[in-house]
Design a protein around this nucleic acid. Structure first.
Lengths: 145, 145
DNA sequence: TCTTGCCCTGACGTCGGCGTCAAGGCCTAC
DNA sequence: GTAGGCCTTGACGCCGACGTCAGGGCAAGA
């Protein structure tokens, strides 16, 4: 299949596929006219990349998985190098989550303190259009969208 | 004081201060030679910005706090607009943390499955230099540094 | 006088993962 | 012949918060 069909079947764009090729992932064969040609195996590679990207993996981090599939393994994570990436990612996520939880606690505490010190009073149960609610509605883009 | 001294006292750089000025935060008076001049109040504004930046706030999100201090309030979060930013940030953090926890759970599960399916066996209790440990050491830059 | 040190403005570089435009080629249908 | 649709390469744009370099000014000390 050609690049447009592969992109559509994988739910991505041709630009993305050319970018992956420029990075050395997902290289393509060529027709006589110079058009890129892909097969079902390339689709599997691409799906592997996309799945990991959705998880927040950087492109470079997907490389071991692609290499693993290219080497003939049934799954991209059937190789030690891929598992090493998994491990690093889990550790990274754990660290990040803990960091964000600390920030969330700090900001939450500041919010409570600042609300309590507001001279006008926070009135948390009141759902009328108070001053800060109005301001929120002006600066927030579709929090309900 | 001049820009170099303010930057040093706030633990930042002159480039950063000029950048803040270009964004309309932390504007400075000028000497006859055109040099920027700051006072103690500017230091407080800057410290407010830096604190929020450390929390992961974008520069634009610090603007209400700065405006609040400029308006003469004793704290940057003594104004409704600042509190609105706090609220949005807390909600944003909660959403992000939940999202990361979901990804972490998924990646963790994939890791366990992949380890179990490794033909060589994961041997989780073994701390010898196994294949993937070696590979990790090659591709990870100073995990102990 | 010459160096040192601080300051100025302007502008390009960085990082990731593409989006988007420009300019052109090839094949097919009308 | 020509319009449409798919493909090609090349290259600039984007976002955020600056880093870094170029080229120049001004004042104090040796």
């Amino acid at each position: 299949m050609r690049i447009g069909e592969l992109a559509e079947r994988a739910g991505t764009t041709t630009r993305t596929l050319r970018y992956y090729e420029s990075r050395g992932l997902l290289t393509a064969r060529r027709t006589e006219q110079g058009h890129r040609t892909y097969d079902e195996n390339d689709l599997r590679l691409l799906q592997q990349i996309r799945t990991l990207q959705d998880f927040g993996f950087e492109l470079e981090e997907t490389r071991p998985f692609v290499d693993c599939l290219r080497a003939g393994h049934p799954a991209g994570d059937a190789c030690p190098a891929s598992i090493a990436v998994y491990r690093r990612k889990v550790a990274e996520l754990d660290g990040l989550i803990e960091q964000l939880r600390a920030v969330r606690a700090e900001v939450g505490a500041q919010l409570l303190r600042a609300e309590a010190e507001l001279p006008l009073g926070p009135e948390p149960r009141c759902e009328l259009g108070t001053e800060w609610d109005t301001e929120t509605a002006e600066t927030t883009e579709g929090r309900r969208g």
